[in-house]
Design a protein around this nucleic acid. Sequence first.
DNA 1: CAGTGGTCTAGACCACCAT
DNA 2: TGGTGGTCTAGACCACTGG
Lengths: 251, 251
Amino acid sequence: MMNNRLIDKTSVIPMYYQLAKLLEGQIRRGELKPGEAIPTETEISARFAISRMTVRRAIAELVTSGMVNAQQGKGTFVTMPKLDNIVFELNDFNHNIQQSGILAKTTLLEAKIVRLNELLQEKFAVSNANVKFLFSRMVVSAAEERLAYETKYTLYSKSKPILESDLQDPTLPGLVAAHSNFLPVSAKKVLQVAAATELEASILGIVPNSPVFLIEQTIYDPEHRTVGWSKSIYRGDRYKLTGYDGWYKKD
Amino acid sequence: MMNNRLIDKTSVIPMYYQLAKLLEGQIRRGELKPGEAIPTETEISARFAISRMTVRRAIAELVTSGMVNAQQGKGTFVTMPKLDNIVFELNDFNHNIQQSGILAKTTLLEAKIVRLNELLQEKFAVSNANVKFLFSRMVVSAAEERLAYETKYTLYSKSKPILESDLQDPTLPGLVAAHSNFLPVSAKKVLQVAAATELEASILGIVPNSPVFLIEQTIYDPEHRTVGWSKSIYRGDRYKLTGYDGWYKKD
DNA sequence: CAGTGGTCTAGACCACCAT
DNA sequence: TGGTGGTCTAGACCACTGG
C-alpha cells in the first residue's frame, strides 16, 4: 500500500517532521478523510521502522494544528474542520500598514505628567491622589495620511525625564517599562466600532461621525494591577482585520 | 534549594504536567525572572529523579504557552512577554451573546436559488452561467432586539429542497455542507467597520450611518475553490471583541 | 573543549474502549 | 480480552554555543 522509503532517516530534516508532513499531505489530498481513523501508532511505527515515540511526536504536531484528534482506547481520527472559530491577530494594528511596504510614522502631540482624575481612578483602580501618571497622545501616519490617534496613560514611578526615547517605542507596554518600575506581563484589548468625534475627525482629517475602530488596551503587572491604559482610534476606511480557520496551508 | 518532594510520582496527574505547573508557578511568582535561564534539563532531571524526556515534555508545555524560550547550545530562558500581538477570537460572534445568558434567535427573511451574477462571478471566480447558488438572508436577534443582518451565498449542487434544517444550522459552513457536494475545509474572514446603509439600518432598527461591524466570510473546499460567501452586518453598539496576551492565567 | 538543547530508540506499564 | 493511545525510562548520538 504505502512505500516505506518516504522517510529519509539520514536527512537533516527530523523524522517526526517528515512523517507529520507525510500524514498532513494524505489528509489534505483526501486520502484520509474527515472522520476516518489514521493508522495506529504501532502500525506506522512498524511500517516505517520508526520508534513509536517518534511516531507520537509526529502525530502530536497534527493534533496541535487541529487536523487530527486522538482518543484513548479508540484511535486517532481526522478532524471534521470547524470553521466558525476564526482568530484575528492584531500585531499592534500598524504592522498591517508596514507590511504593505509603507512605513508608519508616529508623531507625538503631547506628553505630560498628570495626577489622578476620575477616568484614571476608574481605569487604574487606585485612590491615592499622589500617584503620578504619564499622559501622552500621538498620531500615526503613513504616506502623508493620518491613520490613527492614540491616547495613553501609564503609571509613572521613575523620576526620569521624558526623553525622545518615548517616540522610539510608542507602544503601551514599552512606555510602561520605560517610565515605571512595573513589569508588564499581560494585556487586554477590547475592540469596538464607534463614530468619530469632532476632535478625532479633525485630527485624522475625516468627516465627523465616520465609522472608526476604537481599541482600548489595558496593561497589567504580575499581580494583575493595571499599570497602563490606552484608547486608540483607527480610521475605518484604512484598517481591516483578516483571520483564517480550518486546514489553511501555512508553508 | 528546592525540595524534590514537589513531584508526586504516584499521582494520577502526569509528572510532566506537575513539573510544568511547578515551573510556571516559579515564573509567575517572579522566582524566575524574564531573561533569566531556567535550570538545565539535566539539572531538573537529576533534582527530581525524573527522566530527561519527561522534563523536556514539561518544558515543551511552557514553550508552547510562550512563557519560555529554548535555545540550542545555550539554555532555556524565561520570555520577556511581548504584549502587542493580541488575538481576537471570533466564535461566530453570536457566542458572545449566548454567553451572556441571552439566547440568540435566527429568523430567515428569504431563501432562494439564484444564477450567476456579477457579484457572484467576482466572489466565486466561476464563469459557467448555469451554476446555481443558494441565496439566503436572515436576522439574528436576542431579547426582542435585532442585532445582526446576514446575507449568504453557497454553491448549490444537491437537488434537494430547501428545508427547515436551514434554520437549524444557519452557519455558512453548515449551509455549504447541507446543500452542496463540497466539503468545507477552510475559511477566511475579513472584519471592517462601516456605516449602516438605509436598508441595514431599517432592518436592525438603528439610525442610518450608525457604525457597524462588517464581516465578510469566504469558505473554501480542499482545492481552495470558493464554495460559500457571506456578508454580515453587526450592530456596533451591541458587539465588541476582547483579546488577551502575555502570561494570562488560564486555569 | 564541555555544556546545552534536539532527536531517536526499544522497551515498559498504564488507562481506556470495544467486544 | 486485545487493541488503542498516554506516560515514562535510561540510555544514545547529534548540532549548536561558548570559552
